[in-house]
């Protein structure tokens, strides 16, 4: 009955990539202020080579999130990123819409190596 969407979602892509043995990081929008293009709960999956699927903004901050994701993979610990028009890096990765977002970035841990 259920058809895979034409564009696979980030979690479906994550499952495929996990089966291929890739290291992955999941980025999730946890808070937004003002105008922001993607709602709370929106997700982006990133692999160790910087391939990604999904979105956490309208394309404004994905590049920065992907870069940060690579260091999260190396560290193996979650972190929180914040983007907004007031950022020093606003010219490069700020939200042109003037909004502000907080993003939780966490590594995906294979069940077999889980400690908790």
């Amino acid at each position: 009955m259920i058809v895979s969407p034409v564009v696979a979602g980030p979690l479906e892509t994550a499952e495929t990539w996990l089966k291929e043995g890739r290291s992955l990081v999941l980025a999730t929008v946890i808070e937004t202020w003002g105008s922001s293009p993607r709602p709370v709960g929106s997700q982006l999956i990133v692999d160790g080579r910087g391939n990604f699927e999904g979105s956490v903004s309208g394309g404004c901050v994905e590049g920065a999130v992907v870069t940060e994701a690579l260091s999260i993979i190396a560290a193996g610990k979650p972190g929180i990123l914040e983007f907004g028009i007031a950022d020093e890096a606003a010219w490069e990765v700020g939200l042109s819409c003037g909004g502000r977002i907080r993003i939780y970035v966490e590594p995906i841990i294979m069940a077999t190596s889980a400690g908790c």
Partner: peptide, 29 residues
């Protein structure tokens, strides 16, 4: 996030069941 949470979310999606992931941002729970 454990890989099995992702698998469970995808399964819930296929079964058309609502699911929720609760994350403690101060820890790893």
């Amino acid at each position: 996030m454990l890989s099995e949470i992702i698998t469970s979310l995808n399964q819930a999606r296929r079964e058309r069941r609502a699911a929720m992931v609760i994350s403690d941002l101060n820890g790893t729970r």
